[in-house]
């Protein structure tokens, strides 16, 4: 049976809000927000080990979440394509990333009960919602 989405919350998470947290606290914070049925738009991207931890914690939460409907997450990150940039621009971006973190990427994470799929190619994302 198809169900209608009554409301949909998109929550912007600035880089500074999570960058100083420990990986555990960062993941807990994100998953708590997702558990409230929010789709998160995060400035920046998670490190590979944080993504790995996020998947692990998500699996644990599927079995233990107070909300019986929690079935996991959908996530995708977009990183700017630097292929067509010149050497100087590339260098500038790398230095900026080293100094202030990788803020020019974008990550979307949503609950799997709302987001059916995030289709992506290198430069665009398409959210398919469950209706």
């Amino acid at each position: 049976m198809k169900r209608k989405i009554k409301d949909l919350t998109l929550q912007f998470v600035p880089y500074t809000e999570i960058s100083n947290l420990t990986p555990y606290k960062k993941i807990k914070k994100l998953l708590d927000m997702i558990d409230e049925n929010k789709i998160l738009i995060i400035q920046g991207k998670l490190e590979p080990h944080e993504e790995k931890d996020l998947i692990e914690e998500t699996m644990r939460k599927i079995g233990t979440s107070k909300k019986a409907k929690f079935r996991g997450i959908e996530l995708a990150s977009l990183v700017p394509n630097m292929k067509n940039s010149n050497v100087f621009d590339n260098f500038k971006t790398r230095v900026a990333n080293m100094l202030v973190g990788e803020r020019d990427a974008l990550t979307i994470i949503g609950p799997a009960t709302i987001v059916k799929e995030i289709k992506r190619d290198p430069s665009k994302m398409q959210l398919l919602l469950k209706t």
């Binding site: 590979p48 993504e51 790995k52 995708a76 990150s77 289709k119 992506r120 290198p122």
Partner: peptide, 17 residues
């Protein structure tokens, strides 16, 4: 299937690390 999934990227990213 579409290979641009975060799971694939996460697996490979962790292997590289």
């Amino acid at each position: 299937k579409n290979p641009y999934t975060q799971v694939n990227i996460t697996i490979i990213g962790n292997l590289v690390a």
